[in-house]
Design a protein around this nucleic acid. Structure first.
Length: 427
DNA sequence: TCTGGGGTCCTAGGACCC
DNA sequence: TCTGGGGTCCTAGGACCC
């Protein structure tokens, strides 16, 4: 059996830990740049605040109902996430926990006796809440997809389930499948939901009766086949090794306001490159390819709805794979220059590192030398300082100091857990 | 006025090779 | 004039996730 532990309204939950007075009040957390609502409590949801909805469209409801608003504070959430995951690891064993996202983890329960499943799930929940203050829901079932279904039901009716649902009999599984619309399944997005409904497949149960040949044809090949198997209770998506390394690393961000000069664009690109390089070093990889993209600000008619912007990008293959920040910044700045057009205004830029290899595999060729030991030692020191502060205390000159392009964060909470000077005071 | 920031996997199709 | 069959590698693009 597999469990998924999912934090309830994670970012809001984090904020509430340090503002207990908000316990039963509506709270929302905004995306970077204060653009969208990316986390909302049940109370905010009940008021009609939409998920992933633009902030400005919900402003009225928020102000009228005195909803508490926070800008996102990723240093703080990252630290809280780490605490939650450590708690789970200490209860279930390091090797049985797969951290799936900042607020979710799968747990392999093969070491737990069937009759103890429910008690163990409860223990996961109560311990996390006691040690970190973050509320969680737990779903338990024979496969990952079914565990997600269980978790969904646990969240939907918190009072009745007490946020724990264990699907350990065929009757419970069938009932759960009948109750779940296909659109709520993990792996079925908007496109597939429409397609399935048009074929008169409405509930998860309907989908579970389909065969694999059909799934292969209509639901994205092997992905669809795995979904069907998982729905039938046959695990088809492995618990991932904790040490799997990323195959691509990106850092991209909207600007606080449109940028129209090359100097600012280059500062932003240098900053993003430094951040991406840091992620790269953390997983002990080097990158062979770097690409940069910029998104011009679109001139839109008032009648048009929002649509995904189109970006301009360019890439470069490096002579030798590296994770040294300055070796990556140089080509990144050249790429930024090649993309920039005088007179244009830009709203976003990003840097992607790909062609990743373990750093131990780097070889020098005839024209280049392997990075010197001192350069690597410098990077280590920089990462240690910046990581311990969960922020960039030490930066590269190319990142600049003006930050005309940096994002808006009007409602950010203090970095309670990573800054002494921002620690909460209790009198 | 104002619409996030990361990632993954899969497939199709083109380039190239023998 | 005629123009195979099989393989690999790469990229772009679509779908999905939180």
């Amino acid at each position: 059996m597999i469990a998924i532990v999912d934090c309830n309204s994670f970012y809001c939950s984090c904020e509430r830990v340090f503002y207990p007075a908000l316990a039963n009040r509506p709270v929302v957390v905004l995306s970077n740049n204060d653009g969208c609502i990316i986390s909302r409590t049940d109370e905010a949801k009940a008021l009609g605040v939409g998920m992933a909805a633009p902030f400005f469209q919900n402003r009225e409801i928020i102000e009228q109902n005195n909803v508490t608003v926070f800008s996102s504070n990723y240093n703080f959430y990252g630290d809280m996430s780490w605490r939650v995951m450590e708690t789970l690891r200490s209860l279930a064993g390091v090797h049985n926990v797969e951290v799936y996202s900042v607020d979710e983890a799968f747990i392999d329960l093969h070491e737990i006796e069937p009759e103890n499943l429910h008690a163990f799930a409860k223990k996961l929940k109560s311990t996390v809440e006691q040690w970190t203050g973050v509320k969680v829901s737990v779903g338990v079932a024979p496969s990952k997809v079914l565990a997600k279904v269980a978790n969904h039901l646990a969240k939907k009716d918190k009072r009745q389930t007490d946020c724990v649902v264990v699907l350990d009999t065929d009757e419970k599984l069938l009932e759960a499948l009948h109750k779940t619309p296909v659109k709520d399944l993990w792996g079925v997005g908007r496109q597939y939901a429409v397609k399935l409904n048009s074929m008169n497949i409405i509930t998860a149960y309907d989908l579970s009766t389909m065969n694999e040949t059909w799934a292969s044809k209509f639901l994205g090949g092997i992905t669809g086949v795995r979904l069907i198997r998982e729905l039938k209770g046959i695990p088809a998506i492995d618990l991932l090794d904790e040490l799997t390394t990323k195959k691509m690393i990106a850092t991209t961000r909207m600007f606080g306001s449109p940028v129209n000069n090359l100097i600012d664009i280059k500062e932003a690109v240098a900053t993003y490159t430094a951040r991406a390089a840091e992620k790269l070093r953390r997983q002990h990889s080097v990158a062979k390819t770097i690409s940069v993209f910029v998104v011009p600000k679109e001139k839109r008619g008032s009648g048009e709805g929002y649509r995904r912007e189109s970006s301009l990008s360019n890439y470069r293959n490096l002579p030798i794979a590296t994770s040294i920040t300055n070796e990556l910044i140089k080509p990144a700045l050249q790429l930024a220059e090649s993309l920039f057009e005088e007179g244009n205004s830009y709203q976003k830029a990003g840097v992607t590192l790909s062609g990743l290899y373990p750093e131990s595999s780097v070889q020098s060729n005839m024209f280049t030398t392997a990075p010197s030991k001192s350069m690597n030692a410098l990077m280590d020191m920089l990462d240690n300082v910046n990581f311990s502060m969960r922020d960039d205390v030490i930066k590269f000159a190319a990142s600049g100091t003006t930050k005309n392009w940096k994002m808006r964060q009007e409602y950010r909470s203090p970095r309670h857990t990573t800054r002494w000077e921002e620690l909460r005071e209790v009198r």
